[in-house]
Amino acid sequence: MTPARSLIENIAAALSAHGLVLRGGFNFAGGEETPSGLSGAAAISVLLVGQAGAAPWPHFLRWREGQSGTIANPLDKWSREVIGAVAETFGARAASPSDRPYLPFQQWAMRAEGLRSSPLGILMHPQYGLWHAYRGALLFEDEIALPEPRDVIHLCDACLEKPCLKSCPVDAYSADGFAHKACLAHVRGQNGAPCRTGGCLDRNACPYGAAYRYPPQVQAFHMAAFAGL
């Protein structure tokens, strides 16, 4: 078993230099189907990498200024480069949420941090609210001593008004799920300027994690990527 403290502290420090954070991890259960590690053998442990608030944004912008030409999915490319370099340093295989075939990042995140989904489908974090993301994972072929995820308060259970389901002008989110086509048409249309410049109105209506809310320019970047603008 790999000693966890020094490894995790060193990885966290390497990620912190880019505004990224470790988002928990776990060891796969015996007999569980797992992705491969660095050598191609089955991975035994996974550490999730992500962000809290918009901390990576200035690091990403500096990287982007140094790139030539148009880059498809620049944030994904930056994340892959940063996490890939950290993985190489610590003998892990880097994985991305956009890898094909898709890896179960949402399930991994719930397992690693004990989180549950909000009505918008984004995992609700007790500190960050909806203002966090998972950018990648480090897959190890050695077992790492990791604590069990603690029980966390699911803030959505205490939220009676559910403003996240009442702020979208086209009711994109409901008990029936996400109305993707209606949302996309609105964001691209003449009445979608508030969403394009300031982000999803439903997401911004959530009262939790306000200190970590993405600035408008970050939300506009993500909305443009979503809408293909």
Rank of each mutant, 00 (worst) to 15 (best):
G19W: 04
G192A: 10
P119C: 08
D157L: 15
G199S: 09
L120M: 14
L38Y: 03
P3Y: 02
G228W: 12
F221W: 13
A109K: 02
T197M: 00
A224P: 06
E161W: 08
L115Y: 06
N10V: 01
C168F: 14
Q106V: 05
L48A: 06
A224I: 11
G209V: 07
E113T: 06
W78L: 00
A133M: 06
Q51N: 15
I44W: 02
S6K: 13
P58N: 06
N10M: 04
D142E: 15
A87V: 06
V21T: 15
N204F: 01
F28N: 03
P163D: 13
N10D: 13
A109V: 00
E81Y: 01
T89W: 00
P126D: 08
Y102Q: 07
G40R: 11
R64K: 13
A29S: 15
H180N: 09
A72F: 04
S117L: 14
I153Y: 05
M124V: 06
A94T: 02
L7K: 11
P97A: 04
L103T: 01
D157Q: 15
E143T: 10
L165V: 03
R5H: 14
F28E: 03
L138P: 09
P101T: 05
G19F: 03
I122G: 00
W131C: 09
I153R: 15
R203P: 04
R150G: 12
L47G: 02
Y173W: 15
R111P: 07
D202P: 00
V218H: 12
L155E: 11
L47K: 06
S68Y: 02
A137K: 05
L184K: 15
A179Q: 15
W78Y: 14
L130T: 13
G91E: 01
P169S: 10
P147R: 14
R111Y: 04
T34L: 01
V46I: 15
M1E: 10
I71A: 01
Y134W: 04
P3Q: 11
C206A: 12
E32V: 00
I8R: 11
D202Y: 02
P97H: 07
I83W: 02
F60E: 04
H132V: 04
A179V: 07
I11S: 08
A211K: 09
I153D: 14
R116Y: 04
P207G: 12
A52V: 10
S68Q: 10
A158Q: 12
A224Q: 15
A72E: 14
A185I: 12
I122N: 12
R135E: 09
A72K: 09
G69K: 03
G177A: 13
G129N: 10
Q67W: 06
L201G: 02
A42F: 03
A4V: 06
P35D: 01
V21M: 05
E88T: 09
A112H: 04
C195K: 08
I11C: 03
E143D: 02
P56K: 07
L146F: 09
K166V: 01
K77N: 01
Y134I: 13
G129L: 05
P215L: 06
P169T: 13
A87K: 09
P147K: 10
N73H: 13
A87I: 08
L130A: 13
H59C: 09
P104D: 07
Y134N: 05
P126V: 03
I8Y: 01
A182L: 14
R116C: 02
I44C: 09
V218F: 08
E88H: 10
E148N: 10
P169I: 08
S118E: 07
A175E: 15
S118D: 12
F28Q: 03
P104V: 03
A95R: 06
